[in-house]
Design a protein around this nucleic acid. Structure first.
Lengths: 191, 191
DNA sequence: ACCTGAACACCGTTCAAGT
DNA sequence: ACCTGAACACCGTTCAAGT
């Protein structure tokens, strides 16, 4: 039973209703019509606050990312990187379909690049130049989002394993693998 | 001007028409209706050969992946890994939207896991156990698909750089970073 | 076995009209 | 400035009918 009180519409209210829909169903469940119904309003009313569905989805993505603190002020760059991408993964798992929102729909723009600044700064502390830091950021963000997608859609390997696939352990392994790669790359350059 | 000859329909003909549509427009352009029109047939005719759109998209993905040789018989595992994921990236760039097909739609199933076997074998040669090889495979495949997606949608960093973003160099850098990470991880375990 | 035609229950979005 | 109602041009899919 959504709140149908015909209060005034606002970007904020629409975004929150959209987020509820994503959390309880999926990102595909967010249609202009279903969203309007949840708000007790006509689909066309949404167009007074958003340019279109693209704009709306982008606003939802920004809302989610904007609420999070990616910078934990860790003294070592490895800790900073771990915190940053564990956090990104966590919010992706909380909101199924968010990776798709961030990766594809063109909804990504400014928001995904909040973690970029903190991650890039940490990587430069590791000894990478600006360009290589950005490249490494893309490795990390692509890895994190795809792992979250696989987990959401329960895509595990098609081979028979002794134990069920452990998505948490798989993520941590990959994260350490990349960090190790950065360390080795930086050491190689440094000498 | 598509070939409208009312030849007999077949899975093969439908898949190839679908692939043409992906290549010339995008994966969103593949609708049951547009595909039927391109084949000079009624949308419902497709349902005699496919269970539904999901099944159809999956068949297209399998067709693309199945035609490719991921195993180049390189003597060293690094060369094998490079070949495998450069190849995966190449076919993703040739068919815009293929990453989305492979990552999300549930179209992925058996086909994406052809490169898995050859990559996992190479990684075990590098000194990883079976579980860690699979985990590393997921790092590589997530990285490769996301990089191809970013390139297709021209998502580069939002900061001002001296030169335009070089997607090829960025991919190669990430690939070497991960390989370096594998080497360091294996060396650490080995001792 | 294979294909058609009409219909159903959806989409995002435009446009003219109301207040 | 904000919202409604009707309409347009799309979707995937079901179902009954043809051959």
């Amino acid at each position: 039973m959504p709140d149908r009180k015909a209060r005034r519409l606002s970007r904020e209210r629409v975004v929150e209703a959209g987020l509820d829909l994503i959390n309880q169903k999926s990102v595909d469940a967010v249609t202009m019509r279903s969203l309007a119904q949840a708000l007790g309003v006509t689909p066309m009313a949404l167009y007074n606050h958003f340019g279109g569905k693209r704009d709306l989805l982008r606003a939802i993505a920004e809302h989610v990312i904007g609420r999070v603190e990616f910078d934990a002020g860790h003294p070592d760059w490895q800790g900073q990187i771990r915190h940053c991408f564990r956090t990104l993964r966590t919010i992706c798992l909380e909101h199924p379909g968010l990776p798709r929102l961030l990766e594809i729909e063109g909804a990504a723009p400014p928001s995904v690049f909040t973690p970029m600044e903190v991650a890039a700064a940490a990587l430069e502390r590791a000894g990478l130049n600006e360009l290589d830091s950005l490249r490494t950021f893309y490795v990390l963000v692509g890895f994190t989002l795809s792992q979250a997608s696989y987990q959401t859609f329960r895509v595990g390997p098609r081979v028979e394993l002794a134990a069920p696939w452990d998505f948490d352990a798989s993520f941590e392994y990959g994260l350490e693998l990349i960090i190790t790669g950065v360390e080795a790359t930086a050491a190689r350059k440094g000498r």
